[in-house]
C-alpha cells in the first residue's frame, strides 16, 4: 500500500500534533480516500496499522462519517444540497436536473465512472443557494441551466484527462 509523497508528509507532520495515534484517524481517512477513490480493504488495513487500531474500530469510524465510503464512486462526486435554504431556492430542481442529465440516481455512478450523485445536507452555502459541491468545489447560485453547463465542463475535463 503506497500513498503519495504529500500524503506521507502530511501524515508525518500530523502525527506530531496529537498525544495519541488514533487522533489522526478521521482526516487521514479522508485524505486516503481522496487518493484511492474509496476506502478499500487494503486502505483500511493499512490505516488501522498506522494508527494502531483494529480494522473493526477503523470501520466503525468510517461508517459514521457521511463523506467516507468503502465503495468506489465516480471521479466527480456531485453533491446536491436540498437542505432548507437550498430547498427554498430550488435545490430539488437542481437534483432532478442532475439525475436527468447523468441518468443516475443518488448513490449511483455513471457507467463511464465519471460521475456519481449524492443528495447532501447543508454545506454552508445557504446565502448563495442553491448550491452543489463537486468533490470539494463549490458551485453556488445555481439554476438548472447553470447546472447543465457545470456538468458539461466536468465531462469535458474528465474525458480530456483520460485521452
Amino acid at each position: 500500500m503506497r500513498f503519495s509523497e504529500p500524503f506521507e508528509q502530511r501524515f508525518q507532520e500530523m502525527a506530531s500534533h496529537y498525544p495519541t495515534r488514533r487522533s489522526l484517524l478521521v482526516p487521514t481517512l479522508l485524505y486516503a480516500q481522496d487518493e484511492v477513490g474509496f476506502l478499500s480493504d487494503e486502505v483500511v488495513a493499512e490505516i488501522a496499522r498506522r494508527v494502531e487500531l483494529t480494522e473493526l474500530e477503523v470501520r466503525n469510524v468510517i461508517s459514521y462519517y457521511s463523506m467516507l465510503t468503502t465503495q468506489p464512486r465516480g471521479k466527480y462526486n456531485v453533491q446536491v444540497c436540498t437542505n432548507i435554504a437550498c430547498l427554498l431556492m430550488g435545490g430539488e430542481e437542481i437534483l432532478d436536473r442532475c439525475r436527468l442529465k447523468l441518468g443516475i440516481r443518488e448513490k449511483e455512478t455513471t457507467p463511464d465512472g465519471l460521475f456519481s450523485l449524492e443528495e447532501v445536507e447543508c454545506m454552508g452555502a445557504c446565502c448563495w443557494a442553491p448550491a452543489v459541491q463537486v468533490n470539494y468545489d463549490f458551485h453556488e447560485h445555481l439554476t438548472p441551466q447553470k447546472m447543465d453547463q457545470i456538468l458539461d465542463q466536468y465531462t469535458k475535463k474528465g474525458t480530456e484527462r483520460r485521452r
Partner: peptide, 26 residues
Amino acid sequence: YWHGGAGAYEVGEESALMESLEGKRG
C-alpha cells in the same frame, strides 16, 4: 493545529467534537 472532519453534523456538538478529534465516532 488544524484538524479536518469528514461529514457529520453531530460532530459540531462540543463533546462529540472532542470524540471526533480523538479519532472516534462522533
